[in-house]
Simulated assay, not measured.
Amino acid sequence: MTEMEYGRRRPLLWVRGRSIAWLPPLLLLAGVILLDFATGADFRIISWIVLVPGIAAAICGVWTTAAYGVVSVVTYIVVDSAWPDQYKAGLGDFLLVALGGVLAALAAVVRVRQERRMLHIRDIAETTRRTVLRPLPPRWAGLEHAGVYLAADTDARVGGDFYDIQPSPHGTRVLVGDVQGKGLGAVEAAAAVLGTFREAGYHEKDLATVAERLEIRMLRHRSHSTALGHDDGDRFATAVLVAFPDDAPERIDIANFGHEPPLVVGPRGVRELPSGEGVPLGLGDLTGGLPPVHRVPLAADETLLLVTDGVTEARDTPGEFYQLAREVARAVRADPRRAEPRNLVRQVRDGVLRHSGGRLEDDTTIFALRRLADAGGAPGEDPEQGRLRS
């Protein structure tokens, strides 16, 4: 969910949809007044009221904090005036309360500005994520799909993992991959590869030609980045390129660029498709060729599961890797409905987070898809329905 600017952000404390961030400072104010009278003349604590605007500065807005500063000063004067002269806290404590209110208001200004800045950065990251990983209709191009992307850097919310579906006159094409490295360089490389896939995947009839275009684009991007002085000279991307040909309703074509092997999940169990015998995108010049295109069976009731290495390399506390195929097979045996794309993605996501204790060492993408019984899409549906909340 994209966060909005501070003035429209979700308050820190909610009760039935309303903010009660003002309540803790008010309770503290009342508590200090009561204790000041309860402890007697020998132990005056009215000067502790300086904590009230300090607490407000941490959880309230600027104007609320300033109001508490003024209230604290007025309360100090009223309460202190109620005591005989020999027991009054005096001018020194008054100056402390007044100065505390001013400093609290200034601290609130700084905090709110920083929050607005951070929320703006998160909005930019969210826009970048939606540009690289564009929203996909859940029933589109003859496929039902579900996907989830978990960034290892939760503040960045975007990284080098990518996936997309591209309908074309020659069938539907799918690309899932992982750019080596992290940071903006990985995001730029992912965007470059996806841009080429969306064009070549639509126009090119032969999947091998699409694969060649992707390889060339990765090389060009790397060369351009190096010329700009970026440290991208050895950047590459593992990927799986899949085609759902119209003339083979129970077959798919697949080319694997050194990526995790896809799994086919269905009522007859789980099987692994051809592994990454090819080198990653951007390294084809080392072997002089691209990975072969395999045609493999995929029944109508089977789901294709593609993940990045954030799944297979997730470790628990003792250091054991997450066993994807075993865990998926166990889940589907217990409930065959878990082979459906949305249920399958949710099952894997929850399993990875549970196995790793929520500590992701790498960006994690889980993408599942199967052919629709009715190949007609469903225009007008919410495009976010196919993407699970991360």
Rank of each mutant, 00 (worst) to 15 (best):
R134N: 01
D382A: 04
G269R: 02
S390C: 01
V15K: 09
L103V: 13
Q347I: 02
L99I: 15
R111C: 03
L283W: 08
A300Y: 00
S72E: 04
W48R: 04
D36N: 14
S225C: 11
T154Q: 14
A107H: 07
N343Y: 05
F37I: 09
D42W: 05
Y322D: 00
D123E: 13
D335P: 04
A255S: 15
V102N: 05
P379L: 11
Y149N: 00
G357E: 09
L219G: 13
G266S: 09
V187P: 07
G90L: 05
E199P: 00
L286N: 11
G357Y: 07
A105H: 11
L241F: 03
E384Q: 12
S223Q: 13
T131W: 01
V110S: 12
R354M: 06
T364W: 09
T238Q: 01
V345F: 12
V293I: 12
R217I: 02
L194A: 01
P11I: 00
W140T: 13
G171D: 05
A89L: 13
Y322W: 01
L298H: 07
G282D: 00
E199D: 08
H221T: 04
T303V: 11
E3V: 14
D374T: 06
Y163G: 04
D350L: 08
R295W: 00
G258E: 06
D246L: 12
A329Q: 14
R139L: 15
E212P: 02
T39R: 14
G90V: 06
I77R: 10
L95C: 14
G142R: 07
T196S: 09
P169Q: 07
T364R: 07
T2R: 14
R349N: 10
L388K: 06
V264N: 05
G92V: 13
V311Y: 02
L324C: 00
V193K: 05
V210S: 10
G177A: 12
R113N: 15
T154A: 13
W48G: 15
L344H: 12
D234H: 08
E272L: 12
L207Y: 01
P291D: 05
E3D: 12
E250W: 00
D164H: 05
R139H: 15
V265T: 13
D164M: 02
L281I: 09
L136T: 13
D42F: 05
E384S: 09
R222W: 10
G142W: 07
R198F: 04
A151N: 08
S81T: 04
P53T: 04
D234S: 13
R134W: 06
W14H: 14
E260C: 03
G31R: 02
T64G: 03
A189L: 08
T75N: 06
P336F: 07
A237S: 13
Q180E: 14
V97W: 10
G90E: 04
A108Q: 06
R122N: 01
R220E: 14
G310P: 01
G101D: 11
A21K: 03
